[in-house]
Design a binder for these strands. Sequence first.
DNA 1: GGTTTACGAAACGAGACCGTTGCGTATCGG
DNA 2: CCGATACGCAACGGTCTCGTTTCGTAAACC
Lengths: 200, 200
Amino acid sequence: MSIQETGTARPAGRPRSEKAEKAIIEATLDLIAEGMGVSELTIEAIASRAGVGKTTIYRRWSNKEDLVVDALATLKAPLPPLAGASVRDDLISLVDAMRQESGGARTRCVMNIALNEADRHPQLMERFLKRSVEPRRQAMRAVIERGVASGELRADLDLDMGMAMITGTMMWHSKWAPAGDLPPDLAERVVDAVLRGMAP
Amino acid sequence: MSIQETGTARPAGRPRSEKAEKAIIEATLDLIAEGMGVSELTIEAIASRAGVGKTTIYRRWSNKEDLVVDALATLKAPLPPLAGASVRDDLISLVDAMRQESGGARTRCVMNIALNEADRHPQLMERFLKRSVEPRRQAMRAVIERGVASGELRADLDLDMGMAMITGTMMWHSKWAPAGDLPPDLAERVVDAVLRGMAP
DNA sequence: GGTTTACGAAACGAGACCGTTGCGTATCGG
DNA sequence: CCGATACGCAACGGTCTCGTTTCGTAAACC
């Protein structure tokens, strides 16, 4: 009987190490998380940190950019479960998720790239925005729209402006907060401050 | 009569070209404005763009960082005149100044550095924040405080949160606005949206 | 065992910048 | 004119990263 399973011909020889692949991507994310810009990323540094030969990297990705795209693609956007009890509660859930993540190195790396190199690597950004940012945008938009429909929020509310206020305020805090760690009640305070202008 | 004026001995020989100095700083700002990170800035590129020998640069600055500090220091923060008629009008003046500047390459360069390399060059940031950001912060804070005192704004207003909302919302727009150029009425809309939650 | 492919390590030549130096010229004061 | 200094330019040796190649070994198949 041949080796074929489900029509996929297994190539001869030693198979590629899945462990090495994972180590490479982890090393890439680690380096970015440590404040390394995409332009300063070195293949050699990645290989060294991953405990891998450069050959192993070049065998899989031809560009540094391709590698970064794949690395960022592994970052999921796990949305918090929304209770749906009230607009305020749901927004606090979403915003507090931002707050918690803003402390994590992985998220910082993503923020850095998103803010710094948006215009230098537009296609990278496009893929990343679609995968990681858009789901959150949609979730927040849905919450606000539901609030408008239920009467919890003003009927003539400017959706985009409201989302800009929430997201922008959190962005501002996570970038320029005094201590680096954001206070636990920040989400609540931000949402309440913004909602005060959104109430009917 | 000696050449001395006000006790400053004029050193012998050809004086340093003020034009060259200006060209160097302009070139530095231009390169940064084009999306070049501080780490990617090359002395050679600056010299080439400024039409200047590397020697002329090294004669004046020993570090790349020193040069960047001096270059950023030339960026003034011309605050718009505030009519003082109402909190709304003054805030719109301040925010609209942000909007207009956000289109300029110079301001973009500053934003990029401020956002990207805050933790990599902390002392650079310190000097820059003190010179360029703090005056604006103070101006906005004064306007809001005056509004609270005059009863235009809620007495229990959270000053810092209010400023974070305004600044963050504008930051968000200038970074992620769809078209790059911000609509002329953006300042008005942002201020009105935020003020709605600040009214007594 | 034999073949085939992947692996980590090391070395390579090419190119970019570094900070410095030497050179001929330009511009100041005396 | 003379001495002093700055200028633009070109070249230097040194370091770093690049992407590639070679090497001996490891892991899968026949």
